[in-house]
């Protein structure tokens, strides 16, 4: 085990160039809906419980099921109305269980990256070959379901091994959403390939907003607008809005959230993009019109 993950060098935000985004925009905004499938009776993992109750955990399971019956479409329609494509953090087994949800996202022009097979299967303790297997499964499954070749990874339920980032780069993926150390895309040191970190977010994730900080819907909307205003003012930044339809798509939350999308869309400083677009613009700023 290492005391420092060794994935990047320390460099102060203030000391680094902050290129504008395409079109001279100040902040790249991307929305990351987590389209997930949680198993009702997953096998036990030695280091993490899936559910707090004995199976079936009726509230835990059926709350998440709300996404795939009701709230995915409510959330997705709000995004589409305001011109926000999704970059989907996908439990790839959703391609088997509910291909209807995956097809809806594909038809909206959303990008897919892998969030593991299920959000109830954890990577802790996997051998390199086991982790290679879930990466290959992810690539194959999403390609068969959508025609897209995934480029990114957000570890299933945020469970990692020391090998994870090397292995996704080895498989040809070129961005990770697993690191929270900066407001800019940054290269990640791997032994195997070219990997860039695209800032995702814990703090303004709806899961944190509603499950950790217990915010009201309107408080969460204010937090997102404050986050946006600050990052737009600083410039050269990335703002991610990670979502779970079973949270943000509830009827008491969606209207407040829509005010956030309307605010950002109308502001003029936002480059509304997908994760892969941000990775491309970071790697090739002149082609993206940013200029380095």
């Amino acid at each position: 085990m290492k005391a420092d993950p060794g994935l990047y060098d320390f460099a102060r935000f203030a000391d680094r160039p902050r290129d504008p985004w395409p079109g001279g925009k100040r902040v790249a905004v991307w929305v990351a809906p987590n389209l997930e499938f949680y198993e009702i009776d997953p096998p036990a993992h030695p280091q993490r419980r899936s559910w707090t109750k004995p199976h079936p955990d009726v509230v835990g399971y059926s709350h998440r099921d709300h996404a795939n019956r009701v709230s995915h479409w409510r959330m997705a329609d709000a995004m589409t109305r305001h011109g926000f494509p999704g970059s989907v953090s996908l439990s790839v087994a959703l391609c088997q269980h509910h291909p209807e949800v995956v097809a809806d996202a594909r038809q909206r022009g959303w990008e897919f990256f892998s969030h593991g097979i299920y959000n109830t299967r954890y990577a802790y303790g996997m051998s390199a070959d086991q982790e290679r297997a879930i990466i290959a499964d992810s690539i194959r499954t999403v390609r068969e379901a959508t025609g897209q070749t995934i480029r990114g990874w957000l570890a299933p339920a945020l469970t990692h091994t020391e090998n994870t980032l090397d292995l996704i780069a080895e498989a040809g993926l070129d961005y990770t959403c697993d690191l929270y150390h900066d407001d800019r895309p940054l290269p990640v040191r791997t032994t195997t390939g070219d990997l860039v970190s695209i800032p995702y977010s814990l703090e303004v994730n709806d899961h944190y907003g509603f499950f950790i900080y217990n915010m009201s819907p309107r408080d969460y909307a204010r937090a997102l607008i404050d986050q946006y205003e600050r990052l737009a003012a600083e410039g050269g930044t990335v703002m991610c809005i990670p979502l779970h339809a079973y949270l943000i798509g509830q009827p008491h939350r969606i209207a407040a959230f829509e005010t956030v999308l309307a605010h950002i869309a109308a502001d003029g400083r936002a480059w509304i993009a997908r994760a892969g677009d941000i990775a491309d613009a970071y790697r090739n700023p002149s082609a993206a019109g940013g200029g380095r």
Binding site: E39, P46, A93, Q96, H97, R121, G125, S127
Partner: peptide, 15 residues
């Protein structure tokens, strides 16, 4: 420590 290989079996992965 390596996970049981069965941890990567998905017997109910279906429509």
């Amino acid at each position: 420590m390596t996970l049981d290989p069965a941890y990567l079996d998905y017997p109910r992965r279906r429509h």
